[in-house]
Design a protein around this nucleic acid. Structure first.
Lengths: 246, 246
DNA sequence: TATAAAAGATGACGCAAGGTCACTTTCAAG
DNA sequence: CTTGAAAGTGACCTTGCGTCATCTTTTATA
């Protein structure tokens, strides 16, 4: 049993925090003295450490509370969600980093600091134009000849099966980003398998990526459905793969 | 001269934000009507865009206010400071990302979600007894524990699916002989996948090949059945692969 | 055991950047 | 001049506590 300042020294967390956690019901003292002073035990210390860890990896206290309360929490789900959030944040920061470096270089080259406002204007204009460009839809053409070669759903042929498995893995690990080793290994395997299965007679994957079919269309052809997001991701990963080959 | 809602439409920023910026003195309307309605001009629009840009690269409103107020601001200094902040943040997020991936992998390997709390403890007190206990667990690995990692039949997990597909292809193309390119490609993919899925902590395939279980045994464990002939062939092909690597 | 000092409790305000009510006043058209 | 839309102000809410101010309990010493 520890008094609140001992508990603070053991954990390195402030007294105010304990009172706050008590108030929001996240971590309650094991008991109280007659006068109302809080008392903690080793159990609370361990729970506090769990809370601290979950906090450092970016969860909010309200989420942590629910996590630790329910006995059968879907940990992998929330960890994945948190991971994708972290990855997005990193990407956002990377963009900011690039902008900052450009600005710093621009200033260094100019030497005239008052030009900063003009540079900032450039950024604003650029971003609005980029939005327009990105909204332009890409071409949607079909090639039934190629479609016939695409692995069919429900096939028990191990070759088709691996295609399905590879696409499935692509989706599963998409959150790692297209440059991730695991993703790149999958792409490489696809590339090798492409030339084995389709003998390079048709640039199969190229066609596949041009088709960009909707789930509805692919069902019509009894194909393994590949959604737009996965196709886009596959394209990015493949471009990256080609760039880093040789 | 724009009224506040026109200004909102021109900039995409909320009305509440304008009132807030006015209150904190960041962006004041150029004038007001007799009744007190705010009026903005193109000057304010440009300034607002500058504010928005500085906000996206991570500056606080209080900083932005000072920046835009003083005529001779040391831009390069504050941009550098911001850059170092962004770099630190990215590094912090990278560490979080690693932790999250380790946790996710741990769960994926374990399959037992309730172990999350033990894993979290490991992060906190790396020197405590928990680590020792856990290491002991790992030292006590037996064949049955390895068996738990082997892809199960009927699993829809794309990773398991690819294992099954790869073994299936091995059987299908076995007649080409173990040194055939196609076979060697399959073996290579297995090797890559082995280190991805099992993290090299255990030489998974080695164990698998040591087990050499009968179809009956594998059914008992609900495993994808691999017959003796395929196992032997796999071994030969793998030895050949190791010899021709590098 | 009385008393002083240290330790603890409670409550309130503040922080950043606004969102979301509720209620009142002004503007612009007919 | 009226009426509905638009604009105004003020207050409370969010996160995760830090920082007073004030009051009560515990503990050490005389």
């Amino acid at each position: 049993m520890f008094h609140i300042t001992e508990f603070k020294k053991l954990s390195g967390v402030s007294v105010r925090t304990f009172r706050y956690y008590d108030k929001i019901g996240l971590l309650k003292p094991v008991s109280k003295t007659e006068g109302g002073h809080r008392l903690y035990s080793n159990t609370e210390l361990k729970k506090l450490q769990q809370i601290q860890f979950l906090k450092t990896i970016g969860f909010q206290l309200s989420e942590i509370k629910i996590m630790l309360e329910s006995e059968e929490w879907d940990w992998s789900n929330s960890l994945m969600k948190q991971l994708s959030y972290v990855i997005n944040e990193k990407e956002r920061l990377s963009k900011i980093e690039i902008s900052l470096r450009e600005l710093i270089n621009g200033i260094a080259i100019d030497g005239e600091e008052f030009k900063i406002k003009k540079i900032m204007d450039l950024y604003n204009n650029k971003s609005s134009k980029e939005v327009l460009n990105n909204n332009q839809d890409k071409l949607n053409f079909k090639n039934t000849e190629v479609l016939e070669k695409i692995p069919k759903m429900g096939s028990s042929d191990p070759d088709s099966l691996e295609w399905i498995a590879l696409v499935g893995q692509l989706k599963k690990y998409m959150h790692y980003g297209y440059s991730n080793t695991r993703i790149q290994n999958i792409i490489e395997r696809m590339d090798v398998k492409k030339s084995e299965d389709y003998n390079d007679e048709e640039a199969f994957l190229d066609k596949l990526w041009d088709i960009r079919m909707s789930p509805e269309e692919s069902k019509k052809y009894n194909l393994y459905p590949i959604d737009q997001e996965t196709l886009n991701f596959m394209e990015k990963a493949y471009i990256y793969y080609l760039g880093n080959q040789s």
